[in-house]
């Protein structure tokens, strides 16, 4: 796994190439009169797929940060939220009680990436010298502050209602209904997710990734071997922030709205647990882990409708109990996750 050369050979196809190709095809498809109507009854599943693809984008960045460089970022949702709201506020047309500047969506998309990255730089410079567990607390607190601001600053963000009237670029390309929009969205987001996976994979599988893993193992030694440790930490922090910001923008452009409910701490919990289940540091594994945890959520949602004597609130609680138990079991009995490498993570299982 750790040998650079063999990492390269591991793949029959390269995700960057496939992702790019798919993206071009997806755009062509969008602007063609073609559309795909999904079978009835699959809406719920497809909506989860959309979320999965967005969370996957956050996760590839997080995995580079924690899985490879060992940075305990407990606030990925902060960048997701900042990206989403930046895009929404710049593009919304007269939203109900919030800032809406009505710029075209590409402006919003670009700004989302830049603002999220800028927040990453700011936060990174000030906090990346903190010890692991304190970095965790600060990033978590920043995410909560941002969430608090989104909920309370109603005149700017629309408060708990959020913003509506945000453009929906993909929905605008077809008149074939919500189902067709959903499928198109999945194709576009899927291509992008694959592309980002490929790019981050190239980073982690190269000498660059080797430096990151060295930082996780021992910062001081890495520094005395001539590496600018802080620069690397800052860089991966910002890359992850930028991609999460983009994912946030994609979410609001898909929904045509932004609301604090899209950007709760649950997002952080889900991507973290997905990463740990799959095995931090295993680039494909973490996505598998995310798929597992999100399928579990989806499955239990269906299950809830089948069991009459448990209230919805109880059911939600039980689901979270199970997720917590899963986290505990993983941390204790399989710290390298399903597909992770125990030697590489320096854990015993």
């Amino acid at each position: 796994m750790s040998d650079g050369a063999s990492r390269f050979e591991e793949f029959p196809v390269d995700a960057v190439h496939v992702g790019l190709t798919l993206f071009v095809l997806a755009v062509l498809f969008l602007y063609s009169p073609l559309f795909v109507q999904p079978p009835g009854g699959t809406f719920t599943v497809l909506e989860v797929v959309v979320l999965f693809l967005l969370y996957a984008m956050i996760l590839v960045g997080l995995n580079l940060q924690f899985g490879h460089a060992g940075l305990v970022n407990f606030g990925p949702v902060a960048f997701f939220a900042v990206g989403g709201y930046t895009a929404a506020m710049l593009t919304a047309n007269e939203p109900f009680r919030a800032v809406g500047l009505g710029y075209p969506w590409p402006v919003g998309l670009l700004a989302a990436i830049l603002v999220a990255a800028a927040l990453g730089v700011l936060l990174g410079i000030s906090t990346l010298r903190l010890r692991d567990d304190f970095l965790a607390i600060v990033t978590l607190a920043v995410a909560e502050i941002i969430h608090g601001l989104l909920e309370t600053q109603s005149d700017i963000t629309g408060g708990s209602l959020g913003l509506n009237n945000v453009p929906r670029p993909i929905a605008g390309t077809t008149t074939a209904g919500d189902g067709a929009v959903l499928v198109s969205t999945i194709i576009v987001f899927g291509a992008l997710a694959l592309l980002f996976y490929g790019v981050f994979r190239r980073l982690s599988a190269s000498p660059y990734g080797r430096v990151l893993r060295a930082i996780r193992a021992d910062e001081q030694v890495t520094e005395t071997l001539g590496k600018r440790v802080f620069r690397y930490k800052l860089a991966v922090f910002v890359y992850g922030a930028a991609v999460a910001g983009l994912a946030g923008a994609l979410l609001v452009f898909y929904n045509g709205a932004a609301a604090p409910g899209f950007f709760t701490i649950n997002v952080t919990v889900i991507v973290w647990i997905g990463m740990l289940i799959g095995g931090a540091g295993s680039d494909r594994g973490v996505l598998g882990g995310l798929a597992i945890i999100m399928s579990f959520q989806l499955f239990t949602r269906f299950l809830n409708d089948q069991i009459p004597f448990v209230t919805q609130d109880q059911f939600a609680s039980i689901r979270l109990v199970l997720i917590g138990l899963l986290l505990m079991v993983i941390v204790k009995y399989r710290p390298e996750g399903i597909w992770g490498d125990a030697d590489e993570l320096g854990v015993e299982s």
Partner: peptide, 18 residues
């Protein structure tokens, strides 16, 4: 001794390449 224990011997060496 402070080897980077979670890296292979090869990676320990290659990491130091300036």
């Amino acid at each position: 001794t402070r080897e980077l224990e979670t890296l292979t011997v090869a990676d320990n060496m290659l990491l130091a390449a300036p």
